[in-house]
Design a protein around this nucleic acid. Structure first.
Length: 422
RNA sequence: GUGAGUGUAGCUCAAUUGGUUAGAGCAUCGGACUGUGGAUCCGAAGGUUGGGGGUUCAAUUCCCCUCACUCACCCCA
């Protein structure tokens, strides 16, 4: 229909991706540092896996029936004919790395964390991006419910340290391979009876994954789901015991939580404990962090029978609700006038940087007034003025920008003045 | 994949029922002030009104298509 020439498109970031500009990156660095410091304190170590993996790692790990695998993966064939997928989540990569490097034969605790980008072909909206960043935490080889509680406590502590308020911790147990099938069967039977009252999506879920009917937000589905049997009455002795102990450990840690029988995580691999921390103020995508136990993944991957638990936290979501501002560093602006001063200024910059004083010198050739104005706008703590006169006299002007006081000093005394007022 | 909303300067927003040359604040640059920042005043620069088509004497305004962004469904961090 349209024979018009296509509009010139300005070069732009891909849909669902965004630049984190210098003005915003400070808060990212602060959150990353806070998370890393805390995790290391609990005995976790960083494990960095590649951004892409063989596609079948996620098919097997994340689950072939999940939405993530069936419709959200960035999958392509490389020049060697391999099917490659940009990781949509981190857990399968960690499991793979542990098996590949036989890390379970080392004495070190199998506790890992990682912060980095994940990729999902979702339609972007508030709190949802195609490239987004997760903080990922995993523990292997611990089946005691105490670790379930500790990992929740660690997540809770991180959020508290960052000043997050209005966050609520939800917990549940989804059973295991011994007890969940019976529950799923009964759930299917119940759902089947009221099939006509459910939305088309949920009608489909009856066959594929009936637990996820609990996730539905359609009013009629919620009404029906409320009458469905609860997982809690189907848990086997082991799972029930695990969940009870998990809850009492949470009490011991002093973590407030809410048992949410309808909490069903969207990944297939979860067993026993699942948890989520939600926050108001995030919009529809209200999960700040989510995770749970996945005791079968390692042996399903052909590795040792190691139980595991972990969680992932959404960086963009977390940062969107943070109110803290990282403090700006104090730095020295070196203003120069003329060629000789420029050389001298470069020498000063090198000297001060080596002494641990952040220093900025610009070479645009501005007037002194202009350089002062720049220094002020950029938030410099001090300005060092280097001109012909200063060089001749061997005395330099150092201005404290906060007070406006200006001292004349020899080169060797400048550092002391700066350090004294820092 | 489905639905709704919004697109005007770098940013935040104006522009009468469709009506002259599309304005303002902030930011940028310059000047008042030859080597001293913040405040004030003056000035400059910055726009194919997202793009294309249509209706009209006339379109930022109305209609259609398209693109982008935002929000929601879905899914999840």
């Amino acid at each position: 229909m349209s024979t018009s020439t296509p509009a010139k498109k300005e070069i732009a970031a891909i849909k669902g991706t965004k630049d984190i500009l210098p003005g915003e990156v400070g808060i990212w660095q602060k959150v990353e540092a806070e998370a890393k410091g805390l995790f290391e304190f609990y005995g976790y170590r960083e494990l960095r896996a590649p951004v892409f993996e063989a596609t079948d790692l996620f098919e097997k790990g994340t689950g072939e029936t999940t939405d993530i695998v069936t419709k959200e993966m960035y999958t392509f064939t490389d020049k060697g004919g391999r099917s490659i997928t940009l990781r949509p989540e981190y857990t399968p990569s960690v499991a793979r790395a542990i098996i590949e490097h036989r890390l379970y034969l080392q004495p070190d605790p199998l506790r890992f964390y990682f912060i980095g980008p994940m990729f999902r072909y979702d339609k972007p909206q508030k709190g949802r991006y195609r490239q987004f960043h997760q903080v990922d935490v995993e523990v292997f080889g611990e089946k005691d419910p105490a670790i379930d509680a500790e990992i929740v406590e660690m997540a809770d502590t991180l959020l508290k340290n960052l000043g997050v308020q209005n966050a609520e911790t939800l917990v549940n147990s989804v059973g295991c391979r011994a007890c969940r099938p019976a529950y799923s069967k009964d759930l299917r039977a119940h759902a089947e009876k009221v099939r006509d009252l459910l939305c088309p999506d949920c009608q489909r879920k009856i066959a594929t994954n009936p637990l996820r009917i609990f996730d539905c937000k359609v009013e009629s589905c919620r009404e029906q789901a409320a009458r469905f049997p609860k997982i809690s009455s189907y848990l086997c002795r082991e799972c029930r015991d695990h969940f009870t102990k998990f809850c009492s450990y949470l009490d011991l840690f002093g973590i407030p939580y809410k048992v949410e029988p309808n909490l069903v995580r969207g990944l297939d691999y979860y067993t026993k404990t699942t948890f989520e921390i939600v926050s108001s103020g995030l919009g529809a995508q209200n999960a700040l962090l989510g995770g749970g136990r996945y005791d079968d993944m390692m042996k399903d991957f052909g590795g040792p029978d190691l139980s595991a638990i972990g969680f992932a936290l959404g960086m963009e979501r977390l940062i969107s609700i943070l109110k803290i501002k990282p403090e700006k560093s104090k730095f020295l602006y070196i203003a120069t006038l003329g060629e000789a001063a420029k050389t001298k200024g470069i020498e000063f910059a090198r000297f001060f940087r080596r002494q641990g004083v952040e220093s900025l010198i610009e070479f645009v050739g501005r007037s002194l007034k202009n350089q002062m104005s720049r220094a002020n706008k950029l938030g410099a703590a001090w300005v060092l003025i280097v001109g012909e006169e200063e060089i001749r006299k061997g005395l330099y002007q150092l201005k404290d920008m906060a007070t406006g006081n200006q001292n004349e000093a020899k080169a060797e005394d400048l550092l002391k003045i700066i350090c004294d007022s820092a």
